[in-house]
């Protein structure tokens, strides 16, 4: 499946590590899909499954996000710069409900709520890891 250009969602992107690597990702393993690796362009989606949705609960922040399952691909675009990366879903996350209302902006235009988590490889392709979060548009 190729990365498309149909609008899907918008919000904040954060990053996480996975794949039995160094640091705190040793305990994370290869994620809910069993395929996640920090060095690949992958992502975590809050509605990967019903069990996942129960943990992330984006609906509590008003984000009725659609179900997308392991292996689905998405284009994630930095709202400020237009830099884009194509990612494959490999895990459940982020915990949207814990940060309801949090906003990240570009020159006054803000995106609210954490809607996607990117691997370091994907996040660093469109921003700096030390920034922690980015405002993004998501296409499929």
């Amino acid at each position: 499946m190729a990365c498309g250009s149909t609008s899907l969602w918008a919000g904040e992107a954060t990053w996480f590590c996975c794949g039995n690597a160094w640091g705190s990702c040793g305990s994370a393993g290869t994620g809910a899909c069993g395929t996640c690796q920090s060095s690949k362009h992958m992502a975590a989606w809050p509605n990967l499954s019903a069990a996942c949705y129960d943990i992330t609960r984006p609906d509590l922040c008003g984000e009725g996000m659609p179900r997308r399952t392991c292996g689905a691909v998405m284009n994630v675009k930095h709202q400020c710069s237009g830099a884009t990366v194509c990612v494959t879903l490999a895990d459940c996350g982020p915990r949207t409900k814990s940060f309801c209302g949090e906003a990240t902006c570009c020159n006054g235009a803000c995106r609210t709520n954490r809607v996607i988590d990117l691997t370091p490889s994907a996040f660093s392709a469109i921003g700096s890891l030390s920034s922690g979060k980015l405002p993004v548009y998501i296409y499929e």
Binding site: C80, S81, A83, T104, C106, N107, S128, S131
Partner: peptide, 22 residues
Amino acid sequence: TVELLEHSLAWQAAMPVVRSAL
């Protein structure tokens, strides 16, 4: 300040030229 820059129009305009992080 880095956060302020990254949210600004200046960053938007200059990002195609920027290669590194800070």
